[in-house]
Simulated scan of single mutants.
Amino acid sequence: MPPPPAPVRVLIADDQSLIRLGFRMVLDAADGIEVVGEAGDGAEAIAATERLRPDVVLMDVRMPGVDGIAATARIARDHPEVRVLVLTTFDLDEYAFGALRAGAGGFLLKDAGREELVAAVRAVAAGEATLAPRIVRRMIELVTASGGADPAASPETAARAHDVLTARERDVLDSMARGLTNSEIADELYLGESTVKTHVGRILAKLPARDRVHAVLIAHGLAEPSA
């Protein structure tokens, strides 16, 4: 019998100790997840990531000193193998897009339920997109509404991304942008799940993108491809 998979190792970064305790209790009670450390601000999160090398950092946005967005950018730059899941009580575009552009692998609001939080940690650890539904809707509105383009968007980047993908890959990417999982994409597009995984891998390689969220941002001109 093969050994069980290693648990997903999580670092919790939040300036409120009670919030950290709540997250720890939820995650420690979940199968296959281990909380390996805590941080009270962005600087501590950066140092703890360097020391502990977690799989996922659960990152608050508003923290004293180095905020969550700056810490996310530093972690994404220095430790691209570490996934960052940003949580905040602030349902504002500037935080969502700032965190995603900085390199976060997902974004959830703090009012997410227990099961949603656990599922988000697992999904981000697996390299899948995790976005609050309202953030996905706002992203789509922002990049498709007439006259509503993000001033930081690059039409040239979006055009290059469109050109390198096949029609089917663009279909898969559109589904990814709506936050669908591989199994949901397979059902929607009448494909096998293994075929969807192949398309996703090719999309990430062609753009090139570090993960699914980054691919969506590149395709809409909201981020630059990986170096």
Rank of each mutant, 00 (worst) to 15 (best):
T72I: 09
L85S: 00
R83P: 00
P54H: 09
H79S: 12
G42Y: 01
A48K: 03
A99V: 08
L58E: 00
R53G: 04
L92N: 08
V66D: 11
A29V: 10
A71E: 00
R101D: 05
D41G: 07
F90S: 07
V35R: 03
R74K: 14
E94T: 11
L87G: 03
A29G: 12
L85G: 06
A96N: 02
D60H: 09
A71D: 03
G42S: 10
G42M: 03
A30M: 10
A76V: 02
R101F: 06
I69G: 05
R51S: 15
D31R: 14
A30V: 08
A48M: 09
A45C: 11
G42I: 04
G40C: 09
V56W: 04
D60N: 12
P80T: 11
R74P: 08
V26T: 15
L85N: 01
G98E: 03
D93M: 12
H79L: 11
L27E: 04
F97Y: 12
G40S: 14
R83V: 02
P54D: 13
A29H: 11
V84L: 01
V57Q: 00
T72W: 02
V35A: 01
M25A: 13
R51C: 10
G37H: 10
R62M: 14
R83M: 14
A43T: 10
V66H: 05
D93L: 11
D78Q: 14
A71I: 04
A48S: 14
A47S: 12
